[in-house]
């Protein structure tokens, strides 16, 4: 049988200790072991970006990250994006209000990536947004509504709504 290992990590502010086979991806760990099915696997080879989560403050492909690599780490998934009052983050709110979600399968990865972008660059240009999101594939929207949403979220966060 496949080798197993015990890991401890924080996911959406809560600490978990689990035993996993070493070949388990972080995506499968989140989905199958913690039942956090909001993270989606679109290609499982690191191109589409649907599985993107935040790992220790940086966006990461959870399909290419092994769960054991996240041992001791701090993970944020789409389920952890509401604030302490249970309100949507500005990016979630802006995605909703700008019709930036169609089938929604890619949405978790876009939210994580967009939040990371705005944390480092509160006022990105359209070019910068397109560049930053270019590692995430959306097959439905043509990206236009997503870019508008990120711009709106940035404006809201800057208090210009």
């Amino acid at each position: 049988m496949a080798r197993e290992q015990s890991i401890t990590l924080t996911v959406n502010g809560r600490e978990y200790t689990r035993t996993v086979t070493v070949r388990t991806s972080l995506a499968d760990f989140l989905r199958d072991h913690l039942h956090l099915t909001g993270t989606h696997t679109g290609c499982e080879h690191g191109v589409c970006g649907a599985c993107t989560v935040s790992l220790n403050g940086r966006s990461a492909r959870s399909c290419l990250t092994l769960a054991v690599q996240a041992d001791g780490g701090d993970v944020v998934t789409i389920e952890g994006l509401r604030d302490d009052e249970g309100e949507w983050s500005p990016v979630q709110k802006a995605f909703f209000e700008n019709f930036a979600v169609q089938c929604g399968f890619c949405t978790p990865g876009f939210l994580i990536t967009a939040i990371e972008l705005l944390r480092g660059n509160p006022d990105p240009s359209e070019e910068e947004i397109r560049e930053y999101l270019s590692g995430n594939i959306c097959r439905c929207s043509g990206y236009q509504a997503i870019i508008k949403a990120v711009q709106a979220a940035a404006a809201a966060a800057r208090g210009q709504e």
Binding site: R31, T37, I78, W88, F99, V101, G104, T107
Partner: peptide
């Protein structure tokens, strides 16, 4: 999104999208 007497012709925000923004939608693999 727009105030309009009629719903048809108005960009009504889609409640269907809410679970998708929370990671609570249930796709097949979920």
């Amino acid at each position: 999104r727009f105030v309009n007497e009629k719903a048809v012709g108005t960009s009504v925000l889609p409640d269907e999208a809410r679970p998708l923004l929370d990671g609570e939608a249930r796709f097949l693999n979920d």
